[in-house]
Design a protein around this nucleic acid. Structure first.
Lengths: 208, 208
DNA sequence: ATACTTGTTAGTACCTGGTTATAATAGCTG
DNA sequence: CAGCTATTATAACCAGGTACTAACAAGTAT
């Protein structure tokens, strides 16, 4: 009888911790009582598990959420770069991904609002410029077709020229949903060539 | 002795209710204990007051905030129109105001990120078109000078032409900080002329 | 076999921030 | 004076925990 009996219901600790994490993750309002039922262990075990995993009690979780949403300088999804940059060759090209979610669409039609698609492209155009400060000067953009809820937008940026004593760069950005082009933009980016302070620009990007 | 004695500290009920309301309003995380101290009445009175005013207990307040911020379709400040529309003459012109706050700037420099200024202009260009659905087709934009934290951006939109069987409109938008122009954009907006479904556009606007 | 360790469960005391109900008191009013 | 409102007090109870102590089962080491 060296074999583990393991009632079907009962998971090993590791897996239980995983499950507990994801349960709380997709319902932060769950009580220990409910977790007890779902995990088929005692409430003490649930509490020890939370302790081990550093998961605070229900009320603390709610308080944290409330405080975060009350924070006036909360980091909007617009904070640094719109979209996830998956490839970046400075001064040459870059790729970013951006998934269209509920909060990006016009609720009545499910069509993404233009400035989100623009923001992704603009962010990428600025990011691809290898400089301390990069500011969008002008942009010529075209929304080729609408992008809908749930679609994944792939933006590809190409640096076309570095002119004017390295103070300007032209960047072209094409955004796709699968193979279809949905957006095209031509950006003129000012850069801080050395310590030159530039007038008439917007946006910035860090280099690290 | 018909005169009310009224200790300086103690307010009449009405005023206390007002004060209580505003205290909770600008610090939703305040407990009855703290209210007791600030209002100089017993905790029972505080609780009776909350009862009368229909203000839930601290934990309920936090829960409501947490739930609201957890709501997947939460109305971000990006939801409908960026900026406050202060004047709108459909198919002719419009004005909107937008104040640059912490969350709109690049933290290192305090310079507004381009897509916010674009978003204001784009929203206004779409809003000024008198139609059920209006979608940005193309835009030619220019960031004339950077906009900084705390500045108020005034966008003015003018409908320049209504062409192509009422299916396209050209809208020009100029954004100013005081008298200085900071942004200029030329938008081509597709509209749903009757029931025509348009391809290759973005964004929408309601009419009510 | 015995001791030690880990995992789990149980039980108790205590905490915060309240609710609900009941009663006592003060002060004014008709 | 009775009747009313406003306020305060007191006590029981609740949810959803924390903190601690104890007990037991199973596996591992000695």
């Amino acid at each position: 009888m060296a074999k583990v009996v393991r009632t079907i219901e009962r998971l090993p600790k590791r897996e239980r911790h995983q499950l507990l994490g994801s349960l709380i993750d997709d319902n932060p309002f769950i009580t220990d009582q409910e977790l007890t039922r779902q995990l088929k262990v005692s409430i003490q075990t649930v509490r020890l598990d939370r302790l081990e995993l550093g998961i605070p009690e229900l009320r603390e979780r709610m308080k944290l959420m409330a405080e975060r949403s009350y924070d006036p300088v909360r980091s909007l999804p617009l904070d640094e770069v719109i979209g996830d940059i998956v490839d970046l060759q400075l001064d040459h090209s870059g790729i970013s991904l951006f998934e269209i979610k509920e909060e990006h669409v016009f609720s009545r039609t499910g069509i993404a609002r233009g400035h989100h698609v623009f923001a992704q492209a603009n962010s990428l155009a600025v990011a691809v410029i290898n400089d301390e400060i990069a500011l969008t000067a002008t942009a010529d953009i075209r929304f080729v077709r609408q992008v809908k809820l749930g679609e994944k937008c792939i933006a590809k940026a190409y640096v076309r020229s570095i002119s004017g004593g390295r103070s300007k760069a032209k960047v072209e950005v094409f955004s796709y949903v699968s193979d279809e082009m949905v957006f095209q933009g031509s950006f003129l980016i000012y850069r801080s060539a050395g310590e030159t302070v530039i007038e008439g620009g917007m946006d910035g990007a860090d280099r690290n």
